[in-house]
């Protein structure tokens, strides 16, 4: 037989193969990003310094092992927590040096002096459910966000949460003037209503 040339490989099915792979990767792709509540943990200290502070500047939230909420020793429903927290933080009952210029609270002498001094203390049991703890954290963050939004609207005409979103988003270049300016604004708002959370160490039993 005469020597034949090698026949051309039919490339028509190449598209099918590529489609197959494409569909596989389409299905396995997860482009969703995680989201959640971000926190900074305090550094570990041998013996945490005991700060003398006024009883009325502490908002105590206790979550029992049966997932019940005790706020300043009174039972409360989760739905009321945000309101109670705002009432406490924004109270501004301080006089003279401690006075709060921007607060819109009632100035109740039994509640906090100034948002800067106000501390929210969260205590939980080892048996407490994680979901409930997150719900409480969420409500407290909501309270702060509401107050911070109000101040941001007053000072800069936009929401605090929107500002944080732009800051973290891809729109602004790192180190650019606009980004630095936004950072300064966010810091300013945070200074007005600092997130003073204290979490008591749960004892091992």
């Amino acid at each position: 037989m005469a020597k034949r040339d090698a026949p051309d490989v039919n490339a028509g099915s190449m598209a099918d193969i590529a489609f197959l792979l494409l569909i596989f990767f389409l299905v396995t792709t997860t482009i969703e990003t995680d989201q959640g509540i971000s926190r900074n943990l305090p550094p570990l200290e041998e013996d945490p310094p005991k700060v003398e502070r006024n009883e009325r500047n502490v908002f105590q939230v206790l979550i029992s092992k049966d997932d019940e909420l005790l706020v300043d020793n009174e039972r409360m429903k989760l739905g009321n927590l945000k309101e109670a927290a705002i009432y406490f933080i924004d109270n501004g009952g301080g006089k003279g040096e401690k006075a709060c210029q921007y607060c819109q609270g009632k100035g109740d002498p039994k509640s906090s002096d100034n948002p800067v001094k106000a501390i929210i203390s969260i205590e939980h049991d080892r048996q407490t459910e994680y979901g409930v703890y997150i719900a409480v954290q969420n409500e407290l963050v909501a309270a702060f966000n509401q107050l911070r939004n109000r101040e941001a609207q007053r000072l800069y005409g936009q929401d605090y949460t929107a500002m944080v979103k732009t800051f973290k988003g891809p729109d602004l270049e790192d180190g650019s003037n606009a980004k630095e300016e936004l950072k300064g604004k966010i810091k300013q708002i945070r200074k007005l209503y600092p997130l003073n959370l204290s979490e008591a160490e749960t004892e091992k039993r």
């Binding site: 990003t33 995680d34 989201q35 959640g36 509540i37 971000s38 994680y130 979901g131 997150i134 719900a135 954290q137 969420n138 963050v141 909501a142 966000n145 944080v164 973290k168």
Partner: peptide, 13 residues
């Protein structure tokens, strides 16, 4: 995972 609505997105995987 538990639910929350006051969330921030985690950007850099």
């Amino acid at each position: 995972l538990p639910y929350a609505d006051q969330v921030e997105k985690l950007q850099k995987k």
